[in-house]
Design a protein around this nucleic acid. Sequence first.
DNA 1: CCCGTACTACGAGAGCTATCGTACGAAGCG
DNA 2: CGCTTCGTACGATAGCTCTCGTAGTACGGG
Lengths: 120, 120
Amino acid sequence: MSSVTTATNTRELAHPARDEIRLECVLHALSDPMRMRVVRALATTEDELSCSHFVLPVTKSTTTHHFRVLREAGVIEQVYRGTAKMNGLRRADLDALFPGLLDNILDAARREAGRLGDDA
Amino acid sequence: MSSVTTATNTRELAHPARDEIRLECVLHALSDPMRMRVVRALATTEDELSCSHFVLPVTKSTTTHHFRVLREAGVIEQVYRGTAKMNGLRRADLDALFPGLLDNILDAARREAGRLGDDA
DNA sequence: CCCGTACTACGAGAGCTATCGTACGAAGCG
DNA sequence: CGCTTCGTACGATAGCTCTCGTAGTACGGG
């Protein structure tokens, strides 16, 4: 009972607090196709998804970079769970700051994907 | 009645057609503080505003650059009227492609401005 | 026809960004 | 203890972007 902290706390990741999230950073984070893809995938489920769950047409180091941009913008939350790093949308924070914005952007992305004949 | 075209058509500006507008370009265009400022000002009125109406803390050539980014992303429409260049939001096109998105982002920007104690 | 106003074009520089490859650290499994 | 899997750190590079200054074009007024 001294300092164990449940074994999933070993590596901590820096996240912006809710009131440190900036609209411009969020929009910038979502203005990249790879990152939009990640966010759209995260939005389809309640579960957290591991980084390796995503198959992006870039290398792993580039993927790491994109996840960091999303985390530092306040769009996603990341926690280590064993060797995996789980990712989840920060819905509650984003909805509190910008009501409806996330869903609206996701809807816009869905429309555009449909319009351009993309799958997903 | 042959080829006059009403004297305001001399210098034509390239705009993307409605279905050439890309969500990612729109988000990117709005992820810059200067450009967000311009769009927020345009949203407050029905009128078109001249470039010189905006007082931004950058030089005029930089201002020109930002207006071009907004135009090429499909966010604004620009027409020459005499020596002035008038700017208007492409509300109809954006609403058709991404219903509610523009208003939602503008609302988010307003909230953030309030939260951070900005004026406007 | 000259001048002022409004905006542009071009060149340049500083800084960011997306991408990669290689090498490394952390957790779990046998 | 090794091996594997997952993700990171670091360095490098090409390209974009925000910014500026200077020089130039278009339009309208006297």
